[in-house]
């Protein structure tokens, strides 16, 4: 062998990336990652870490919400804080992220008289990705409020809440304090390397403190490159309707929209054996 080997040996099967977003066909330097792939990974990891650690820019979020105009429930958004004082505490004490601090709890109250129609509370929480909330909460909410109105369902909207250092379950306490029949939580999900901005949407019917995951329904991976706002909004409407019909939420609701979505996947051929 007199031929000199190139520094980076590329993988001929890199074309298979047409079938997956997985990091296949990266090539190799010796048996290790080529420099370009090493650096690309580090950038993705840096973005995912920033999504966890950069604080939610609440002022910018409020600006975005103002664009909703008359659709925004009044009075305007409430700014709340969980019992986790900062990100370090938040990451190690999920229990503290699930309940409101005293000052926030005092801001919330139920209507004096029992409302004639069901009341819906919407909560936006930073969760584990501020960038998911920053990028995707306003478009998701815009779409959902439009669809809700178009559906003809008659809901009384409680004031919108924005929570810092919040976990999903904090929505149940907020819903209870606002006297809501149902609560919807939009929250930043644990960021993936290739998906730092996934928004999660959770629904609880008859929310109150101390409920577990089995009482919640979840719509995951809401973002332009994942589940579209349109699709997520339709699923949420479906779940809300079913919850109202059954008088409960969580495992008792069969999410039939899921089956439809899975039927749509594209390449169901195993090219290795067919």
């Amino acid at each position: 062998m007199t031929e000199k080997k190139p520094l980076v040996i590329e993988n001929r099967w890199r074309d298979l990336r047409q079938f997956t977003d997985a990091r296949i066909g990266l090539g190799r330097a010796g048996i290790s990652l080529p420099t370009s792939e090493l650096l690309a990974f580090q950038l993705a990891h840096a973005r995912a870490r920033d999504a966890v650690h950069l604080p939610l820019d609440t002022a910018r979020l409020l600006d975005g919400l103002n664009s909703l105009g008359a659709r925004l429930p009044s009075p305007g958004p409430l700014r709340l804080q969980s019992r986790a004082a900062d990100r370090q505490v938040y990451l190690q004490r999920p229990d503290l992220g699930r309940s409101l601090d005293a000052g926030s709890a005092a801001q919330l109250s139920a209507p004096d008289t029992a409302p004639a129609k069901p009341r819906l509370a919407i909560v936006i929480a930073d969760g584990l990705s501020s960038c998911a909330v920053q990028n995707n909460a306003v478009p998701m909410l815009t779409r959902f409020l439009d669809d809700l109105e178009a559906s003809g369902a008659d809901w009384d909207l409680a004031p919108l809440s924005i929570v810092e250092q919040g976990r999903v379950a904090i929505g149940d306490e907020i819903g209870e304090r606002l006297g809501a029949s149902a609560v919807v939580v939009l929250i930043g999900e644990r960021p993936g390397l290739s998906s730092p901005d996934s928004l999660g949407v959770y629904l609880t019917w008859a929310p109150c403190g101390g409920l577990n995951d089995a009482r919640r329904n979840c719509i995951s991976n809401v973002r332009p490159a994942g589940l579209s706002f349109e699709n997520a909004s339709q699923r949420l409407l479906y779940l809300l309707r079913e919850a109202q019909r059954l008088g409960t939420s969580g495992v008792d609701i069969k999410d039939r929209t899921e089956e439809v979505a899975i039927g749509k996947t594209g390449n169901n051929q195993n090219f290795l054996t067919n």
Binding site: N11, W13, L16, R17, F19, T20, D21, A22, I24, G25, N221, I262, T265, G266, N267, N268, Q269, N270, F271, L272
Partner: peptide, 15 residues
Amino acid sequence: HPTDDVAGIAASIVD
């Protein structure tokens, strides 16, 4: 694979 896509799974198996 996030949607269990068979071709996507096969691509990672090849790799």
